[in-house]
Design a protein around this nucleic acid. Sequence first.
DNA 1: CATAAAAGTTGACTACGGTCAATTTTTAAT
DNA 2: ATTAAAAATTGACCGTAGTCAACTTTTATG
Lengths: 200, 200
Amino acid sequence: MGKREENKQKTRQAIIDAAIKLFSEKGFDKTRVSDLAEEARIGKGTIYGYFKTKSEILLAFCEDEIEYVFNEVRIKAKQESSLLERLQTLFMAQFRYVTKNNEFGRILAREMTFPEAANKESCKGLEERYLAEISEILITAISQKELRDDVELIFIVGHFYALYLIVLSAWYDGRFQTEQEIQEALHKLLTQAMEGLSPQ
Amino acid sequence: MGKREENKQKTRQAIIDAAIKLFSEKGFDKTRVSDLAEEARIGKGTIYGYFKTKSEILLAFCEDEIEYVFNEVRIKAKQESSLLERLQTLFMAQFRYVTKNNEFGRILAREMTFPEAANKESCKGLEERYLAEISEILITAISQKELRDDVELIFIVGHFYALYLIVLSAWYDGRFQTEQEIQEALHKLLTQAMEGLSPQ
DNA sequence: CATAAAAGTTGACTACGGTCAATTTTTAAT
DNA sequence: ATTAAAAATTGACCGTAGTCAACTTTTATG
């Protein structure tokens, strides 16, 4: 009775494994959906029983990988570091991951911020995961009086996430060239957000 | 001698006119490039002598329209209104324009924040135009002591633009349903940015 | 075990964005 | 006016994402 369920899991994973291999090897655009099918030893049509679009496969694959990034960050983020440092660490880790392979980082970012109708659901899941990770940091910060506690949490989370996205966007626009520049820009923006933009 | 140049302008405009008509009538996805060609009374191949991709046509068409939005805003933005009000007016006007036709607003936003390689150039132009419009407001604000003058302007511009984008993204994710909600969210975020997120 | 319904698989097919070699039009030179 | 080079136009063609009707496998029922 678990036979069907079991096979579905296996097939799904086989597709993701094929994606990890081929997307990394040849990049997203250069990998045909039929290539993925061949690598996963299934028919091309079958893939569409598991994923609505090609980019949804990328999303699924990132959903797996992102957990590694978050874990890595949790280890680095010692209890004693300040809110700003912790945010900086998280965002830089995301940035490094996402730009390791320039091409599919951009596609991921695109889908996550302004998803196609078909990908909306998986994107929302992934975004929720991102926001949750930021939330965790902010909740600690609030309890340690490093942050205002008179605004809805979600708006603070969104605020910081927005700053990360704009820096990422600027990177893809070619406004920043080096990791160093990204780091500085992020730092300036986060500091601004903390201090406020009103005079004095 | 101006014959060639003149024709090029005419053809370019014919394509944009076709785009205005068909994108509005049938939407971006449902409009084939060959439809645009037919409407503009030219061959499909010709279009690619003027625009690198289908979405670049959308971008060009928005570049025209956006000026109307900015003008509209300038009229509303009386001299006496505060920085926050002026930003709110600008962003809400952009929001209304961009979501008037839900579909191509999303595509525009996608391309502008994380453009495909082929569209990078036109996107940058359009984004520059957006940022310039925000800059103008901020420069006035700085001279009226409504804003800190000890941070690079571009980072303040980017900060506010980021907040606009995150709200737009949240709208497309379905996190906000009404214009009212957008307005409130935007207001909260802009206020946060002014006041800062540090305790008191 | 037989069997019928449900679920899953498949590759030929469709649709469309983008390319390009062949053709036409414009310009510049004599 | 002639003509050759340059620029612009074109639609047949290509590649690939996504669909779907036919087919296979699994499950549930008696």
